[in-house]
Design a protein around this nucleic acid. Structure first.
Lengths: 187, 187
DNA sequence: AGGATCATGTAACCGGTTACATGATTAC
DNA sequence: GTAATCATGTAACCGGTTACATGATCCT
């Protein structure tokens, strides 16, 4: 399962709690793989049973106790094996409720469609701004998170951000062109 | 569930068997929503229990018997309701095993990464060709599938194809730029 | 001779989502 | 005061994947 390897990959940078693992997901990896807290906690206990991580409890007086997870040697090995094993098919199946409705667009009012395209555009533009903000504070975050070689990690994290930005710009342009075409279209 | 509405949407163009429903998915809607045969059969029986479709068996001597599904009035209504009810969030969560490995690219050999990027590029280029072929034979398929207003349907189906083509071209460009940057990078 | 196509399903499994449960501290 | 953050989990549910089962005809 990819989620568990994503988690092992993060833990290979250093020990973390489930909660802080979630933070890393949200701040960086969510570009590429989203995860919920309940999933992370469930998966952590599976990983511990497999011997890929081990945990120690750190008592805190002012805050709830922490269960800190460390990656084991077996965990590092399993992660490296997964990492090197690229799947044959490099694409993933697509399921998009918005596009499904566009597919059946002939059964909708033109005005309603334009409203929805505009909503789509503004949501994508908002997300583009989020990505640009992440990008601009990236080197700070890199040094926090990655201890060994922050510059090298930044190269690859920038690849994922760049893909996000490029595809966002493209779908915004696509939606704008759709609105234009719809405007011209008379039925 | 979106799958069932996608199925109802197709059935609103005319009666079909589970098997031929799958064909329509593969030829057109799979751009936007993929479905497996077992899923389709399972979902058809659910839809029948709900009264959204009804089936009749057509005996065939040379081929296995067909169970032909028709959409009911209640089904049409449910479909229209779903269609008009665009979700607030117009994007879908992303989970991409390839990108996850790129994210951890600093832990891989540069040469291996370039090989994988090249594979990515050739796969995307192949898929782009498939899309272009679909596009060029689209008007034929439109008249086959859509009885009422093929030109209007074609407009929207072209929207989905166009998005596919645009994003494919973008990710190909992205991957090429990554290879270029990787080539320059010395560690 | 062998693989693709037509045609219909069932059952087990797996992983992602949602809801539930608890509760202190900190910042506005 | 109230919302957010810190912190950990469990349980039920739902939908997508994979494997199994069957068998004739058509095309190469």
């Amino acid at each position: 399962m990819s989620l568990s390897y994503a988690m092992l990959g993060i833990l290979s940078y250093g020990p973390r709690t489930g909660y802080s693992l979630k933070k890393v997901f949200d701040k960086s990896i969510s570009q590429v793989w989203v995860a919920s807290l309940s999933q992370i906690y469930r998966e952590l206990s599976v990983l511990e049973k497999k011997g890929y991580v081990c945990s120690t409890i750190q008592k805190q007086d002012d805050r709830p106790n922490k269960r800190i997870y460390n990656i084991t040697g077996a965990g590092e090995l399993a992660f490296q094996e997964w990492l090197q094993d690229f799947p044959d098919k490099l694409s993933y199946p697509l399921r998009d409720g918005f596009m499904l409705r566009i597919f059946f667009g002939s059964k909708l009012e033109k005005e309603e469609l334009i409203i929805q395209f505009e909503r789509f555009i503004s949501q994508k533009k908002a997300y583009l701004k989020v990505l640009e903000e992440i990008e601009s504070t990236f080197n700070v975050y890199c040094n926090e998170f990655s201890s060994e070689s922050p510059e090298k990690d930044q190269l690859f994290w920038n690849f994922t951000i760049k893909r996000g930005k490029m595809t966002l710009k493209t779908v915004i342009r696509w939606a704008e062109e759709c609105v234009e075409q719809l405007g011209k279209y008379e039925d």
